[in-house]
């Protein structure tokens, strides 16, 4: 079975398989190469902790703290929405929906997940922002709260579908044991199933968070764009992704601004990388715990 042809074909597949590894390595190398020159004109501490982001002023100032704070705020608001709604939907799908309902509800979640982010951004700009402006008497509806709410809606299907997968891994015997002890369905859900699926659910939350932090077009269009450390949820903000998307077009390639934007991308990449690695680690241990190692 080990003819030269077979070996050659295996080699081809191996090469293709390494493409993903090469791509990830390539992204890391490019980000570092284009980002590190930033530290020749601003110290790492002043870059991360500086409160003034005036990249086109004379002299320019490159402090990304306002952008980091903005990302943290909108992501935080998004979590407030997507965690209860996402986990709640997953529990509903898993516990209460019959096969007929599932056949409708699962596609609803999948379709919601496949709506492009530009559509969410456009919807936020034309429908949500005027609504928020009216509802809260704001001077302008484009602010951290509006962006956070939309991000929360976007991340809900992500959390829901991953959490639902996690619930599916909980062995039937757990539930049966709980019923046998006299617990009703709600008590079984809260005291047995949710704790058993706990780390799977946290994976879902981390991945939802990662999605919200990395989301670009929505925050670019809806968050308001002011690079100032927000004092309230009604302030316009400029998250990291929005700064990159808005400013890269006008930054001269190889200039200070260009390198600074790559440095923001590197920071963003590292944050999502840590989140994804954590999610991966937790879910692997979770499967081990339930005896489902794969």
């Amino acid at each position: 079975m080990n003819t030269p042809k077979e070996r050659f074909i295996k080699l081809l597949f191996t090469a293709a398989a390494f493409s993903s590894l090469a791509l990830l390595a390539g992204i890391i190398i490019v980000l570092f190469r284009e980002a590190l020159p930033v530290f020749s004109f601003v110290s790492p501490l002043a870059f991360l902790g500086g409160e003034s982001w005036y990249p086109t002023a004379e002299p320019p100032e490159f402090g990304i703290w306002p952008l980091i704070a903005a990302s943290a705020w909108v992501t935080g608001i998004a979590l407030v929405i997507c965690v209860p709604l996402g986990v709640g939907s997953a529990l509903y799908l898993h516990e209460l929906a019959g096969p007929r309902q599932r056949a409708v509800l699962k596609p609803v979640i999948e379709v919601l997940a496949s709506v492009p982010s530009i559509i969410y951004g456009f919807f936020g700009m034309t429908v949500m922002a005027p609504f928020m402006q009216e509802a809260f008497g704001l001077p302008i509806g484009l602010c951290a709260l509006t962006a956070g709410v939309i991000l929360g809606v976007m991340a809900t299907p992500t959390v829901a579908s991953i959490a639902e997968d996690a619930l599916g891994y909980v062995p039937r015997s757990f539930r049966e044991a709980s019923f046998a002890l006299g617990a009703n369905r709600w008590e079984t859900l809260v005291k047995v199933i949710i704790p058993a699926a706990g780390s799977g659910i946290s994976t879902a939350i981390i991945l939802g968070m990662s999605r919200a932090i990395g989301e670009t077009m929505t925050v670019l269009m809806v968050a308001g764009g002011a690079a100032v450390v927000p004092a309230s949820v009604f302030d316009p903000v400029r998250p990291m992704t929005a700064a990159i998307a808005a400013e890269m077009g006008e930054a001269a390639v190889g200039g200070e601004h260009y390198h600074a934007l790559f440095a923001i991308a590197l920071a963003l990449f590292l944050v999502t990388f840590v989140f994804n690695a954590a999610a991966e680690l937790i879910s692997r241990r979770y499967r081990l715990k339930l005896g489902l190692a794969r």
């Binding site: 990830l24 992204i27 284009e34 990395g214 990159i244 998307a245 890269m248 934007l261 963003l268 989140f275």
Partner: peptide, 17 residues
């Protein structure tokens, strides 16, 4: 692991790449 991580890379980072 690289496939899982690539799936989580923000799209704007792909743009810069």
């Amino acid at each position: 692991i690289s496939v899982n991580n690539l799936a989580g890379v923000p799209s704007v980072v792909f743009g810069l790449f």
